[in-house]
Design a protein around this nucleic acid. Structure first.
Length: 278
DNA sequence: CGCCAGGGTCTCG
DNA sequence: CGAGACCATGGC
């Protein structure tokens, strides 16, 4: 592969590429027989491979790829603030090098609107279907770019349903219209404090507490945001010695116990829980 | 085949 | 604020 190696962060903390791309943050990357990953960063086709914790990319893509995969995140500092309970320690041992990606905001928001009550494999299938039906073809990629808000805003609900969205089609359509009409400017919101940003996101159709936290964590660099889905809900309940709780109680517990990088801890716990199976 | 999933929204206490 | 009903689909 015509590629040059780029280094990870100055501290030398590595990236685990496969873990990062298979941890339910992003849903359109494909691994080939040679363990190279093919995907799009925005509308730029990218091929990435991992070699001893560093990334190999095409010349010229170093900055784009480095930012997308958050190679500047200080993993050792983050790990130093991990909680000391057995589950968190074990998740760190399993997931060392997994990074929270910086995703394009609309793409992240839209895919997580479609994610409710769906498994990762289904979210991935819907994502590909939406790209294929509405997205712009990209030269050098077998995956289409994620369609802009205006494109989905001009679609019909029944067209969206053909992508397997079910009742989520209406929410995606309504939110696409809000964004396309300028009712909310996703990129401009990045300067807002987290509470105000969260409120803005939750004003969108199909965006509640959990989806807003996914977008805060995966697209707005709020590394303390904790999405609580059924998996993390079970993990938190186990950490509370089996004591169940309301969503707000679990959120408060997570804020208190998972530390300043709670979003990172959550992602590691999520991956550990989903891959437990014994 | 039945089960469950990176939930949101509305209604009613 | 908290609990329940309802929503559609597909992988397994």
């Amino acid at each position: 592969m015509s590629s040059s190696a780029i280094r990870t962060s100055p501290s030398g903390s590595p990236i685990a590429l496969g873990l990062t791309l298979e941890s339910g943050q992003v849903f359109h990357w494909k691994k080939d027989a040679d363990a190279r990953w093919h995907g799009l960063i925005g509308d730029v086709p990218v091929t990435v491979a991992e070699c001893d914790g560093s990334l190999l990319v095409q010349p010229g893509h170093e900055d784009l790829v480095g930012k997308y995969f958050s190679l500047d995140h200080p993993l050792e500092e983050i790990y130093a603030k991990f909680p000391n309970d057995p589950a968190s320690r074990e998740s760190l041992q399993m997931c060392r090098g997994l990074r929270i990606i910086r995703q394009p905001r609309w793409e992240c928001l839209a895919t997580f609107i479609t994610s409710s009550m769906k498994r990762v494999a289904s979210i991935r299938a819907m994502s590909f279907a939406i790209r294929k039906k509405f997205g712009q073809p990209v030269s050098g990629s077998d995956v289409e770019a994620y369609p802009a808000p205006g494109v989905l805003a001009a679609a019909s609900e029944s067209d969206l349903r053909t992508c397997g969205l079910g009742y989520r089609a209406k929410n995606l359509l309504l939110t696409a219209r809000r964004v396309a009409e300028g009712g909310i400017e996703l990129d401009a919101l990045c300067s807002l404090p987290t509470p105000e940003l969260r409120s803005s996101l939750e004003s969108l159709p199909g965006v509640g507490t959990k989806v807003a936290n996914c977008v805060l964590l995966f697209a707005y660099e709020r590394l303390d945001a904790v999405p609580i889905d059924v998996w993390i809900g079970r993990v938190l309940m186990a950490m509370r010695k089996g004591r169940p709780g309301t969503p707000s109680q679990l959120a408060r517990y997570a804020r208190r116990r998972l530390g300043p990088y709670a979003g990172y801890v959550q992602q590691y716990l999520f991956h550990r829980a989903r891959n437990a199976k014994g």
